[in-house]
Simulated scan of single mutants.
Amino acid sequence: MQDRETRIKQLRYRAWRRGFREHDFLMGTFADQHLATASEADLGAFEALLDQADWDVYYWIVGQVPVPDRFQSPVMDRLQALSFTVETIRQTS
């Protein structure tokens, strides 16, 4: 089993390389801001999202498609809040 620091580094790497810029930014920014202090449950929830199709997760985060129950978590709530913050900043710039 890998140590926590290695796991977080791998998750951050995966988060910043999702496949399209908007999703990279949301997942990567979240990883940079939250993974170092995340609980094991939150790390698992984030990792589960990284294992899903990029567009599915992106649409869940931005609210275009309802989030399946199994992916509802504090991690998803924080990702959606980050998305709202980014969109608000973009609209006022």
Rank of each mutant, 00 (worst) to 15 (best):
K9G: 00
D24P: 03
I89S: 04
F25A: 10
E40N: 06
I8H: 01
Q72E: 13
A31W: 06
R17M: 11
T92S: 14
M76Q: 06
A31P: 11
D54E: 14
R18L: 13
P66I: 05
T37N: 12
F30D: 02
K9Y: 03
V86L: 05
T6D: 10
E40D: 15
G63R: 02
M27R: 08
R14C: 06
A48T: 09
W60K: 12
S73Q: 11
L82Q: 05
A31E: 06
T92W: 11
F71Q: 08
A38P: 10
H23P: 02
M27N: 07
V57D: 06
V57T: 15
T92Q: 14
M27A: 13
R4P: 05
W16F: 11
Y58V: 11
V67L: 10
W60D: 10
A31V: 00
E5H: 12
G19V: 08
V65E: 12
V86K: 01
P74S: 08
D42Q: 07
D24M: 03
V67I: 15
Q10V: 01
L82E: 02
R78T: 03
R18N: 14
F71L: 08
M27Y: 09
V86M: 06
E47W: 09
A53Y: 14
P68L: 13
F84I: 03
P74N: 12
D56H: 13
M27C: 09
A15F: 14
F46M: 06
L79Q: 06
L26M: 10
P74G: 11
V67S: 06
G28C: 06
W16H: 15
F46T: 07
F20S: 03
Y13F: 08
D42G: 00
V86N: 02
D42E: 13
D42N: 01
R18Q: 15
F20Q: 04
F46V: 05
H23Q: 12
L35P: 03
A81E: 04
D54I: 13
H34P: 00
L49H: 10
T6P: 04
T29H: 11
E5W: 07
H23A: 13
H34K: 05
E5N: 14
S93T: 15
V67P: 14
T6I: 14
R14K: 14
A45R: 11
S93N: 15
L43G: 00
R90A: 15
P66Q: 12
Q10M: 04
W60E: 07
G63K: 01
L50H: 13
A48G: 09
W16K: 15
M1D: 05
S93A: 13
D77T: 10
I8W: 01
F30Q: 02
Q72M: 08
Q52N: 15
F71C: 10
L43K: 01
D69E: 13
A81K: 04
A15W: 14
G44H: 12
S39W: 00
Q64V: 03
E22L: 07
